[in-house]
Amino acid sequence: MEDSVPAAIAVRGLCKDYDGVEILRDISFDVPKGTTTCLLGPSGSGKSTLLRCVNWLEVPGRGTIRVGGAPMGRTGEGAASRPLSRKELAAARGRIGTVFQNFALWPHMTVLGNVMEAPVHVHGRPRAEVRAEALALLETVGLASKAEAYPHQLSGGQKQRVAIARALAIRPEVLLFDEPTSALDPEMVGEVLGVMRDLAARGLTMLVVTHEMGFARDVANEVIFLDGGKLVETGRPEDFFGHPKTERAQKFLARFNR
């Protein structure tokens, strides 16, 4: 796992519990730059919690996370270890684009406003430059005509594509997707997955929590299977879906192949 080029995301010995109930147990993995990794597993297996630990929306009990080689949440080793200050944490998060299950668009802003907000008001980039880039991103996700619409005027699939454009607008080092199609009706799943496939093909680094097995099989470079907060199996998608090694993964996949 250790390499001269730091992984885009490096997770080591991650543990998390809620009031004594273990949610994540000693999770370690890398997401190499320019690759897509899918986190799979049954509901309650800890996938979303793990993803939220990567940008410190959930604070892990133990373990380290590095994004682009820089520490997330805590810095320093051993006794010198300390939490990042609010400012440092905000700066660290500013390099990560996140797409949420329920879109989480800001309802008081237009579509264009949502996409421009973080680059202008967090990263302090010039408004005119960001506007041109945001319009190009909306074009990429097929929503240039909706730039002046408000989120409540959009369908679920459109909202999620805006959320993807918003995440891309900060020029992220990595993109996190937390079950991006789970809140969509089946007809709209395809349009969002299509955009994500394009992003993967462009070589963006993505960590995706998903129940879309077809997407994981076709797009992921690596899949990680979690169950009960433990990393049960990891491997290339053709190996994982073709010849799962563990009995738990075999049972999980059997439900999808029925």
Binding site: N55, L57, R86, K87, L89, A90, A91, A92, R93, G94, I96, T98, F100, N102, F103, A104, L105, W106, P107, E117, A118, H121, V122, I170
Partner: peptide, 14 residues
């Protein structure tokens, strides 16, 4: 909506 605030945190809003 709490998720809009979580999104602000995730994007690094001071």
């Amino acid at each position: 909506p709490q998720d809009t605030l979580v999104a602000a945190d995730a994007f690094g809003f001071p």
